[in-house]
Design a protein around this nucleic acid. Structure first.
Lengths: 325, 325
DNA sequence: CTGAAAGCGCTTACAG
DNA sequence: CTGAAAGCGCTTACAG
């Protein structure tokens, strides 16, 4: 790869000024003689010219790129979030660049501090830890356009778009009770995120005696199989489980089935994210319907300035076989 | 957000030249009087200065960022690939920006054409389609540093780092035969990628009568449950299945267990990627050991110029309970 | 040890 | 319709 071809090279080859070449290629100013335009196009192809992103961004003061910072792209919920942003932005020639904080406050801090090195117009972030994530996000928000998605960090002055987790818990508990389930366990991650905290609090309020919260280290299939083991070894098995991440539900389900437990006959299982995963297991999993598209839409409106306030999305239950009455 | 604070603002506030301010902040030239350095640091904090990525990249002609273009971050195999690149690059102050082509040649083409708009030093790509992906990748390779990872596109002149898929198939078939399995089915995606083709070809060569290939549209849990349904409805059930993606294996496993089939007693199951997923199911899945780290290491060496040729990684079998003899 | 000046590669207001 | 010139915000070779 020799020195990269610049716009000047193209202009020289086409026998026009860089101004004219730029006008042709950026497609902004259509007032160029057709013949010149053609020569510029030809030279572009001939030389294999590609615009320099840094120069363009420096001049335009905008990049068309948005950063999305999530705890784990391996979590299907966040994978679907990424995919939805891609779809929405692709359609208008913009793009999302994804950063995985690996569920680590330290990694998140490092990557946010490093955000200067990436050209983005805004940063969308799902904070790892309600308190621990706050300083780095607040610092970033002082100089960048920041929107909190799915979760919030304590006291950060940036709009937030997320699910009403407490309402979600109340809806699922209600649904399970209507099916006659009384001994419900909530399986969640350790309450580091705002979302986990809100759910645990709501669950403790609404669930009565015999309802407990089981907190696993992370959202993973492994947490699901571990939770299944713990539940089966406990003195009194619950008659229903709510898992707050589809990937955890999956681990629970395979472990239950491996142990010969029938879902929903022996134990009901409800999940939370509503990713595609929840619909393709056997049996299908009752879940809160996915709000990924609402989150994406509202957060992009904030980025684009057509919306100024955050949004708390109200959940709905999507009933499938796993909680069959 | 008012006008962004520039280096010049910091310099003015600190009463030094932009040259000196730059020397302090870029940390390159330590020959600055301690007192001046201190004033610059103070002004930086005071004003909330953050370097402009575009200006820096334009001047330095390098960004420290690498693009990784994968078919689906929702696939745990690619999620682990992303995570591994992040780990390796983070350690040296560089970063990976991830692009999801959504298993679509059209989306891949669009995003590669759009790569000009993102500042990256190199592009690592796992092509969606052996033939269909070739033109866009070849065009990109003419102007960018490109490395093909995990898969290749036909006739593209860019180094490739990937698993020896044929060898992997041969090893797994051999392992299953040693356990007395004779009627083996290979469950793979439609042979659009180079990897799927290599596997199908190797399987047809090594597997005998009664061994068939079942090709599903995509790598997903849903493909796994569908495959299970198809196999159970077929006239003669196999006694072993090789799934070429862990996420497909997972779908198969839950569907088998839901149907009351025991793994491995009734049917053996081997998988391919060796992601964390394969180790946390019940039973654990026999798999090829993960080669993600080898792929990451070699591909980064190529990017950094300490390696010039591609690499075909030789697989190893990791035996777990799902193929128990 | 410090700073004035050049230049990375674009785009666009301005003059013609 | 076209082009010369300015300037986006940095970094560094050069001169002092």
């Amino acid at each position: 790869m020799a020195r990269r071809v610049s716009l000047k090279d193209v202009a020289t080859a086409a026998g026009v000024s860089p101004t004219t070449a730029s006008r042709v290629l950026s497609g902004v100013d259509r007032n160029v003689a057709p013949e010149l335009a053609e020569r510029v196009q030809a030279a572009t192809v001939e030389l294999g010219y590609r615009v320099n992103a840094a120069a363009r961004a420096l001049r335009l003061q905008t990049t068309g790129s948005i950063a999305l910072v999530v705890p784990s792209v391996a979590n299907p919920y966040y994978a679907e979030l990424v995919a939805s942003y891609s779809r929405h932005l692709d359609a208008e020639g913009r793009r999302v660049v994804t950063f995985d904080t690996n569920d680590s406050v330290e990694s998140e801090r490092r990557q946010l501090a490093d955000m200067d090195r990436v050209m983005v117009d805004a940063v969308l972030i799902a904070p790892v830890d309600h308190e621990g994530s706050a300083p780095a996000i607040a610092a970033l928000a002082a100089t960048h356009a920041v929107v909190q998605v799915d979760r919030i960090a304590a006291g950060v002055d940036a709009p937030a778009v997320r699910l009403d987790n407490a309402a979600g818990i109340r809806l699922l508990v209600e649904h399970l009770r209507e099916g006659g389930r009384e001994r419900i366990v909530l399986v969640d991650a350790e309450p580091r995120s705002s979302a986990s905290r809100e759910r645990a609090e709501a669950f403790r309020e609404v669930a009565g005696l015999g309802c407990t919260v089981l907190q696993m280290p992370t959202f993973s299939m492994h947490s699901g199989t571990e939770a299944a083991r713990i539940l089966r070894e406990s003195a009194d098995m619950p008659d229903a489980v709510i898992c707050t991440a589809d990937v955890v539900s999956l681990g629970l389900l395979t472990a239950f089935q491996h142990a010969g437990l029938r879902v929903p006959q022996d134990i009901a299982l409800a999940t939370f994210d509503g990713t595609a995963l929840s619909g393709v297991t056997s049996p299908g999993l009752t879940t809160l319907d996915s709000v990924v598209d609402e989150i994406v839409r509202a957060s992009l409106e904030i980025v684009d300035g057509t919306r100024t306030t955050g949004l708390l999305v109200t959940p709905r239950v999507l009933v499938r076989e796993s909680t069959g009455h």
